[in-house]
Amino acid sequence: MNYNWNWGIFWDQTPDATGTYFGSLMSGLQVTILLALCAWFIAFVMGSLIGIMRTLPARWAVFVGNAYIEMFRNIPLLVQLFIWFFVIPELLPGDLGIWIKQLRNGPFIAAMLGLGFYMSSRVAAQITAGINALPKGQRMAGTAIGLTTWQTYRYILLPLAYRIIFPPLTSEFLNTIKNTAPALTIGVLELTARARSMQEFSFQVFEAFSAAAAIYLVLSAVVTIVMRMIEKRLAIPGFSGGK
């Protein structure tokens, strides 16, 4: 292989003289984590709302929930990011649009919204599945002891449902981390973007991308381990979520 390997490159200064290439990758990692957490917050909140709506007795709620899921699930993430970043500010009234476009964190915010809503449709599907997996008796028991619909959800259904779907939610969170990478197309300097720019300046293509790959591997391993620990602590003996 006629390629000049240089693993020492990580300790070289970047052209912007703000630190080493390693430091630049680490700052990319920070952005990746921050973006994943912010997007996950949106995904979790919106996903829960929509997921719960789809289990309500009201038919309009089910319809709205289904429409929401279909909309965000059937358009590629990249297209959704472009719409949040390029299209939506154009459709807003003049000054507001310009104000949004000139936000310094514009790309980050667009990526957060795009990724958050995209993932929320997947979270919603999981939540619905979790609630529907509970024995019907649970909901009836709630009604029987005089709880309102809201109380039934709050005290009976949701605590059980979230435990059941904890493992799939963990994997959706891991997907959220991976799906931060397409944000580089709208100018977010996350980990893959940092690796790409390291490659451009240092010409060390494979060192840059393998380092980024290794960081993603470690990140997903750490998240998986932490989630397993949380899952164990949350487990209720006798329920399928806990074994």
Partner: peptide, 20 residues
């Protein structure tokens, strides 16, 4: 391995790596 990596990264990496 494949499931831990973002597809964008894999697209870049393979595009450059495959000829070697």
């Amino acid at each position: 391995l494949m499931r831990s990596l973002p597809l964008v990264l894999v697209i870049f990496l393979f595009y450059f790596l495959m000829p070697y």
